[in-house]
């Protein structure tokens, strides 16, 4: 068995003439919270549908728990819990009945229903019809359903979509607690990087069907190096002066940018500027946010 819980090889899905997913190689290790990121329509949901056997790949293979998805789909799915896009539920049934309809199919013990209801804190609403639930509660019921079969792998597609901030926080805390408390590996997709930043340990970024980044979240963070911006009067002359002194600097938007450097180096630059009678208005550190990097990577897809 390979070290990866999920491993795909050149996974491809073609709709007519358009590639929804093209040669995606996912690699997810045990115990990770893998953040699967991409703008809307990048191919996240299509990839997840293929992982769950809901859609057939046009090309490429999927290995989950080291087993080929094509050959051993049902064996694999026994150990997988899922929530795809907006929650699925039977509105006319109570939360308990909803879970019972799924429990029968999973052959799970009856006591498991109360367990999962308490995990998602819906025990008090178990006897109410689900159509009266708020979106957050429906989403939590969906997670409860995903947990029914004691999965080793949880696949959650946009679990916080459309939730209010407190709902998002609740789901996030729930997701973060899973690997610790239950040893579950999680694949969670989102189009919001800030959200992933707060829970994921690994990140995969997909855009236009192609995987463009896959590594730990730290690696992504390191890309967000800071720059020092200096605002002076007569920017151009000041910049030329600095260059003539052999100091690397760039000029942009009437500001001078220095690459990230030590405190001493900055003070030398400022000293030079003042010495040459330039007025220094501002010296500030400009840090690129992860969002900026994300936008850069997905080349300003514009759908955020």
């Amino acid at each position: 068995m390979s070290e990866f819980i999920i491993e795909t090889n050149k996974l491809t899905k073609k709709f007519k003439n358009r590639y929804a997913v093209e040669s995606v190689n996912l690699q997810i290790k045990k115990g990770e919270i893998y953040g699967f990121l991409g703008p809307n329509g990048a191919g996240k949901t299509t990839t997840i549908r293929m992982l769950l056997g809901l859609a057939k790949p046009t090309y490429g293979s999927i290995q989950i728990f080291g087993k080929d998805m094509k050959k051993e789909k049902l064996t694999v799915l026994k150990k997988v819990g899922s929530l795809v896009e907006y929650p699925s539920y039977y509105g006319h049934l109570t939360a308990y009945e909803n879970l019972e309809a799924i429990r029968i199919l999973l052959d799970a013990p009856k006591s498991r229903i109360d367990e999962v209801l308490s995990i998602v804190r819906l025990s008090n609403d178990a006897k109410r019809p689900v159509k009266g639930f708020s979106l957050g509660m429906k989403q939590r019921l969906g997670i409860a359903a995903a947990l029914l079969g004691k999965p080793e792998l949880l696949i959650l597609d946009e679990p916080t979509n459309g939730l209010d901030p407190s709902g998002i926080l609740e789901i996030r805390e729930l997701i973060k607690s899973m690997p610790k408390e239950h040893g579950i590996t999680i694949l969670v997709s989102s189009h919001l990087l800030s959200e992933m930043d707060q829970m994921a340990t690994q990140v995969g970024i997909i855009t236009k069907g192609k995987m463009i980044f896959q590594d730990s979240i730290e690696t992504l963070r390191q890309r967000s190096k800071s720059k020092i911006a200096i605002k002076v009067n007569e920017t151009e002359q000041a910049w030329r002066m600095l260059l003539s002194k052999g100091i690397q600097a760039e000029m942009e938007n009437k500001q001078i940018y220095l690459p990230h450097s030590s405190d001493e180096a900055i003070s030398t630059v400022v000293e030079e500027l003042i010495h040459n009678r330039f007025s220094v208005f501002r010296v500030q550190e400009e840090k690129k946010s992860l969002e900026d990097i994300f936008l850069e990577l997905t080349s300003g897809e514009g759908s955020l």
Binding site: R49, L52, G53, L54, L74, T75, L77, K78, V80, S82, L83, V84, E85, Y86, P87, S88, Y89, Y90, G91, I102, L105, L106, G142, A145, G149
Partner: peptide, 16 residues
């Protein structure tokens, strides 16, 4: 019943 809330995806992602 399954169409209403798009439950097919949930149902068919089960080991059935």
């Amino acid at each position: 019943i399954e169409h209403q809330t798009n439950s097919w995806k949930q149902l068919l992602a089960l080991p059935i």
